[in-house]
Amino acid sequence: MELSDIRREYTRGGLRRDDLPEEPLRLFDKWLQQAVEAQLTDPTAMTVATVDPQGQPYQRIVLLKHFDQNGFVFYTNLGSRKAAQLEENPRISLHFPWHPLERQVHITGEVEKLSKMEVMKYFSSRPKESQIAAWASKQSSRISARQALEGKFMELKQKFAKGEVPLPTFWGGYRVKVSSIEFWQGGANRLHDRFLFTREGEQWQIERLAP
């Protein structure tokens, strides 16, 4: 089969202006809850896009850990490639691909680092193996073989076997301060519904976009 022959119709329903709240987080919360209730695989998974100093974009999958009126939160190694790029350019793009529900959400904004207290609170809630993995992996660096990573993990697991795992100084998180949120709902005959919320001060401007 040719890749160009792979297609399907989007028939789960549309999105109308009258369906939209004036504040986009209410709709995001509703859609996220529906993704969870539909038992989608990793409903909080989002593509995080950053740009290096040469203008080259990079994408990776990260899990959303919290959101509210102040922004969208995720955690990472502060020595990672994404962290280095955000240090130079705090602009970021998030994308939630809820394909089984024929929905997408695209967010743009800028990041700010989380406080040490916020990071510590989340880190202490993680399973111990995940805490140890944060110590074992120098994220984005080159390694000789997987055995080296596994060996480091086992070494640290033994080291921290009888006590708490301390917060690494190189591990933290970001809050994405939202500039825009776009909601996409698949439609029949490729006539998809797209609405863009753009922040203007404390208010949101809503526009319908052509599919």
Results as ranks from 00 to 15, higher is better:
residue 40 L to G: 01
residue 18 D to T: 06
residue 73 V to I: 15
residue 171 W to F: 13
residue 37 E to I: 00
residue 62 V to K: 12
residue 144 S to M: 07
residue 31 W to P: 12
residue 24 P to L: 08
residue 208 R to W: 04
residue 51 V to D: 09
residue 195 F to I: 11
residue 29 D to T: 14
residue 113 K to P: 07
residue 75 Y to F: 15
residue 91 R to T: 06
residue 148 A to K: 06
residue 146 R to P: 10
residue 151 G to Q: 06
residue 14 G to I: 00
residue 142 R to Q: 15
residue 62 V to S: 12
residue 164 E to W: 04
residue 123 F to I: 07
residue 72 F to A: 03
residue 90 P to L: 09
residue 56 Q to F: 02
residue 184 W to C: 01
residue 93 S to G: 14
residue 137 S to H: 03
residue 138 K to M: 10
residue 194 R to M: 06
residue 147 Q to V: 14
residue 142 R to P: 04
residue 104 Q to I: 04
residue 176 V to R: 10
residue 111 V to C: 08
residue 37 E to R: 06
residue 12 R to G: 11
residue 112 E to L: 09
residue 111 V to A: 07
residue 4 S to A: 15
residue 98 W to L: 14
residue 195 F to A: 09
residue 35 A to Q: 01
residue 201 G to Q: 02
residue 119 V to C: 11
residue 48 V to D: 05
residue 187 G to M: 08
residue 39 Q to I: 01
residue 11 T to G: 11
residue 174 Y to A: 06
residue 190 R to T: 10
residue 78 L to C: 02
residue 14 G to W: 07
residue 18 D to G: 03
residue 148 A to S: 13
residue 182 E to G: 04
residue 103 R to Y: 03
residue 72 F to R: 05
residue 142 R to Y: 13
residue 82 K to M: 12
residue 134 A to E: 11
residue 103 R to G: 01
residue 37 E to Q: 09
residue 80 S to L: 12
residue 50 T to W: 08
residue 35 A to I: 06
residue 206 I to K: 07
residue 119 V to H: 10
residue 180 S to M: 00
residue 90 P to S: 10
residue 36 V to Q: 13
residue 202 E to S: 08
residue 27 L to H: 02
residue 71 G to F: 07
residue 110 E to K: 15
residue 20 L to F: 15
residue 34 Q to N: 11
residue 121 K to D: 14
residue 127 P to Y: 09
residue 42 D to E: 14
residue 89 N to C: 13
residue 115 S to A: 13
residue 203 Q to R: 11
residue 110 E to I: 08
residue 158 Q to D: 14
residue 165 V to H: 08
residue 5 D to V: 02
residue 120 M to N: 15
residue 161 A to P: 07
residue 197 F to H: 03
residue 157 K to Q: 13
residue 97 P to Y: 10
residue 71 G to A: 10
residue 91 R to M: 02
residue 136 A to D: 13
residue 173 G to N: 12
residue 124 S to Y: 08
residue 118 E to W: 09
residue 203 Q to L: 00
residue 21 P to I: 00
residue 210 A to R: 13
residue 80 S to N: 07
residue 35 A to Y: 03
residue 172 G to Y: 03
residue 59 Q to I: 15
residue 209 L to M: 12
residue 125 S to R: 00
residue 84 A to N: 09
residue 201 G to T: 03
residue 201 G to K: 01
residue 176 V to P: 11
residue 23 E to F: 09
residue 58 Y to N: 06
residue 120 M to W: 15
residue 42 D to T: 14
residue 146 R to Q: 12
residue 153 F to C: 06
residue 106 H to C: 06
residue 132 I to N: 07
residue 105 V to A: 05
residue 70 N to T: 14
residue 137 S to W: 02
residue 81 R to D: 10
residue 157 K to V: 01
residue 68 D to L: 11
residue 106 H to A: 10
residue 88 E to M: 08
residue 46 M to G: 07
residue 29 D to V: 03
residue 119 V to D: 13
residue 68 D to W: 11
residue 40 L to V: 04
residue 18 D to P: 00
residue 159 K to G: 03
residue 174 Y to W: 12
residue 177 K to V: 15
residue 159 K to P: 04
residue 138 K to R: 15
residue 142 R to H: 14
residue 45 A to H: 05
residue 22 E to Q: 13
residue 141 S to G: 01
residue 38 A to L: 11
residue 133 A to G: 14
residue 53 P to T: 08
